[in-house]
Design a protein around this nucleic acid. Structure first.
Length: 577
DNA sequence: TCGGTCACGTA
DNA sequence: CGTACGTGACCGAG
């Protein structure tokens, strides 16, 4: 009897949680509701690929640990439950290791991450380390370090524990409130747990696949901005000196270190410019009348490229296969995805170097005005939702406020960011009058932040503010700290919910691409890049847009909010917009 | 070698 | 005295 038939007969079916523990070179352990199974195999990845045909919901502690080998082996799982990702969501912790997720699920204190943090209590617990679960309820440190990988029976035990954690988490997310104004099938926090899990897997895939770069184009851009690739230390110094000289020559007196802000401030004083700091936005007004300031600002721009996105960066982060790779996080801070290696802050002028090989294209899609739309949905503000039914929601907002469009936009953004001063201040009064529900929602979040009271996003992500409660009480309600956390919380409930919606969309796009020659290669808060073939571009555009309708249909259910995306097929990243 | 500060790129 | 995060140079303290 084939393995898949056996598993199917034993109750493993499409969508059913199936915990996986891979012991490299040895085999794997499986656990599901109803059974366990050890499978001996020198090539566990092939076994997983086989079982994938049953379309289970793979359960693992983290995709980073378990799925990386699968992804490298060409397996693209359809569905998963990432215990670490859900632990972040449900418990608001900033770790996703198995030890932390297990402890959080069992209301235990999080175990120390490194050996250095071992406590006496911890050493005492270590005594019964032969068991996977210690007397104090924590997972064994030896098991966490991978001691189970030497024994298939232990691998099965490890999978069973993963499934235990998953079950507790699922109970947890199902108990969270669903704030949508509909009687729905699955609760929003449960669906969020699924898409957060898929985002964690997507992060592993993004790390593996990388972003396609045209090396020749990039080298041309770098050469134009910071000079040719230095071939020696001496050339490097000479290149720096040449760029610095362009600024020095514009100022009287001796050269100074342009990388030292204090020196730059003195330098500016020589031409009669007295500024408290030397930030670009502060110097910008002087640039028109002062060629020296203009030269300094131009130097800053090229210096940014030279230090952060220059030749060393190219060498370090772009592979021999011409793909830019970074480390991805699926939910940092308020819940956004993060990426290193400049993937999330690549200067606009370098984006034309992001382009796939001939015969392939990028499908670029970005969500329009996502944060105000999300605000309308999560706050349940019918008036703002009515505006969010338009392609450009600032137009109806302007009409309702009796202002022009730029003022309306500033007012909405100021409300979400907690800005109180400047021209937005006045418009906020009109916002209060016109959208009282949304404004009350934001004010309530801000109040939680100021007082140190825990919050949850729309999808259920816990924003742990209670840990700051004592400090906030001591600092007082009018302290800088209170205002600062107030603004943080006001923004986090919108930014975090928008991140959840984005990941739901991305996970749906990913699912729609599984049987196509198309892959997501970049996620950027409200923007997706898919790499595909010329022939499939129209198909992928439809996948991306139908995914938004599909994800929006449950995420925005009952809110009356419409989501819009701008989608285009391009040869390089900069070609659109 | 470390944390703090300044600075700046993206959303 | 609008938010978030990642990165690098420099500073002063250790």
């Amino acid at each position: 009897m084939a393995l898949t038939d056996e598993l199917a007969a034993a109750g493993v079916h499409a969508g059913a949680p199936l915990a996986l523990a891979v012991a490299p070179g040895l085999g794997l352990g499986l656990a599901w509701h109803g059974g366990t199974r050890a499978i001996r195999s020198p090539d566990p990845v092939t076994v997983v690929a086989d079982v994938e045909s049953l379309a289970p919901r793979w359960v693992w502690w983290t995709a980073r640990e378990t799925a990386a080998d699968l992804v490298a082996g060409g397996v693209r799982p359809r569905a998963c439950w990432d215990v670490g990702a859900v632990a972040r969501l449900l418990h608001g912790i900033s770790r996703d290791d198995a030890g932390a997720a297990w402890a959080a699920a069992h209301d235990l204190e999080l175990p120390p991450l490194s050996e250095g943090e071992l406590t006496l209590l911890d050493l005492a617990g270590e005594a019964d380390d032969a068991a996977a679960v210690r007397a104090d309820g924590q997972l064994s440190r030896d098991w966490l370090r991978g001691a189970w990988t030497g024994d298939l029976g232990h691998a099965v035990r490890w999978a069973s524990l993963t499934l235990d954690a998953q079950r507790i988490q699922e109970d947890g997310v199902r108990r969270l409130p669903d704030h949508r104004a509909v009687a729905g099938a699955s609760p929003l926090p449960y669906l969020t747990a699924l898409s957060e899990s898929m985002a964690a897997l997507l992060g592993v895939e993004l790390e593996h696949d990388g972003l396609p770069i045209d090396r020749a184009v990039l080298e041309g851009l770098l050469t134009g901005t910071v000079g040719p690739r230095p071939r020696s230390e001496a050339e490097e110094v000479a290149s720096r000196h040449a760029r610095d000289s362009l600024v020095w020559s514009q100022f009287p007196g001796e050269p100074v270190d342009l990388r030292n802000p204090a020196n730059v401030r003195d330098l500016l004083a020589r031409v009669g410019i007295d500024v408290p700091d030397t930030r670009s936005w502060r110097l910008e007004p002087y640039a028109e009348s002062s060629p020296a300031v203009a030269a300094l600002l131009a130097w800053r721009k090229s210096e940014r490229i030279a230090t952060t996105y220059g030749w060393p960066w190219l060498e370090r982060d772009i592979g021999d296969d011409d793909r830019l790779r970074g480390v991805w996080g699926a939910s940092e801070g308020a819940g956004r995805m993060t990426a290193s290696s400049g993937l999330h802050n690549l200067p606009a002028e370098l984006r034309s170097a992001v382009r796939p090989a001939p015969g392939r294209v990028l499908v670029r899609a970005d969500l329009g005005q996502i944060e105000p739309r999300v605000l309308a949905a999560v706050a349940g503000d019918r008036a703002l939702a009515a505006a969010a039914r338009e392609d450009d929601m600032y137009a109806p907002v302007a009409k309702a406020l009796g202002s022009d469009r730029p003022t309306a936009k500033v007012a909405v953004l100021a409300a979400m960011y907690g800005q109180t001063s400047g021209p937005a201040g006045a418009a906020l009064k009109d916002m209060d009058r016109t959208y009282p529900t949304a404004m009350a929602f934001l004010r309530a979040a801000e109040e939680s932040g100021r007082r140190g009271v825990d919050l949850r996003t729309y999808g259920g992500r816990l924003l742990r503010l209670s840990s700051l409660q004592r400090a906030l009480e001591e600092a007082g309600p009018d302290s800088t700290m209170a205002h600062s956390y107030g603004r943080f919380a006001r923004n986090a409930v919108v930014q975090g919910a928008a991140a959840e919606l984005f990941k739901a969309w991305a996970a749906t796009v990913r699912a729609g691409l599984l049987d196509l020659d198309g892959r997501i290669v970049l996620c950027l808060h409200d923007e997706l890049l898919v790499e595909t073939t010329d022939e499939l571009s129209a198909t992928v555009v439809e996948v991306v847009e139908s995914a938004l309708r599909s994800a929006g249909s449950w995420w925005c259910a009952g809110s009356g909010v419409r989501l819009v995306a701008d989608t285009s097929v391009v040869r390089s990243w900069d070609a659109a917009k």
